[in-house]
Design a protein around this nucleic acid. Structure first.
Lengths: 108, 108
DNA sequence: TTTTTATATTGCAATATTACTATAATATGA
DNA sequence: TCATATTATAGTAATATTGCAATATAAAAA
């Protein structure tokens, strides 16, 4: 099939999966980490930084943006990409709560 | 192509992408959340809990285990799955650091 | 206006993922 | 031993992802 049965899960579960999926590629992790390092950047910077073709990087940026991990501001003929802090706060909280919960458990 | 060029990225980037990818499906998020709720469970519990067939759930469990998000102990003829805390601590730290870094930035 | 610069989109081929049925493997209980 | 219970694996079909070349779009510079 190859199709995910999203209708069978909660909105929150689908949202978290969407975010995680967007981070589920090393190029997209590398993009996030580069933006973190330089604060903000344009697609061309990443083309110089990563060993991938421009259309490939543009596509990865699109997916990161769609999942809400980055935002883009048009500045002249280029686009300034930067981190969407809110989404990473959500991730921080999510895993903070999980670790908290697990620490209180005793297991098999 | 459909093939990820893992050799072009660092070990850490590939590792983080691997973990995120494993969480990038609502069924696997649902599995993690169910294990968190009941502390530990066997595959059969999840078959009763999620609207997916047994082999599908078994496959998802395998991927979660491979990525190091859960562990499994054989107990008789069933397998007891539970959260691998260390990996979630890694995730907590990763996003904690990102939010910290972003908060200190001022952006476009 | 024409050219250059920067990014996005389209179309494609190779590969990966998802979910299932059927079946295998393994341990437990009668 | 034979049947049952539990999980895993193999095989398959439908769909998604990845990465690129070619091209389109749009703003800036000449």
């Amino acid at each position: 099939m190859g199709i995910t049965k999203t209708e069978l899960f909660t909105e929150e579960q689908n949202r978290m999966a969407q975010i995680a999926k967007a981070l589920g590629h090393p190029a997209r992790i590398a993009i996030i980490e580069h933006i973190l390092k330089v604060n903000q950047c344009i697609c061309g910077d990443l083309v110089g930084e990563l060993p991938l073709a421009q259309p490939t990087i543009s596509q990865h940026l699109k997916e990161l943006k769609l999942a809400g991990l980055i935002k883009g501001n048009i500045e002249g003929n280029s686009v300034c990409y930067y981190i969407d802090e809110q989404t990473f706060i959500l991730l921080r909280e999510y895993f903070f709560n999980i670790v908290n919960k697990v620490s209180n458990n005793n297991c098999c």
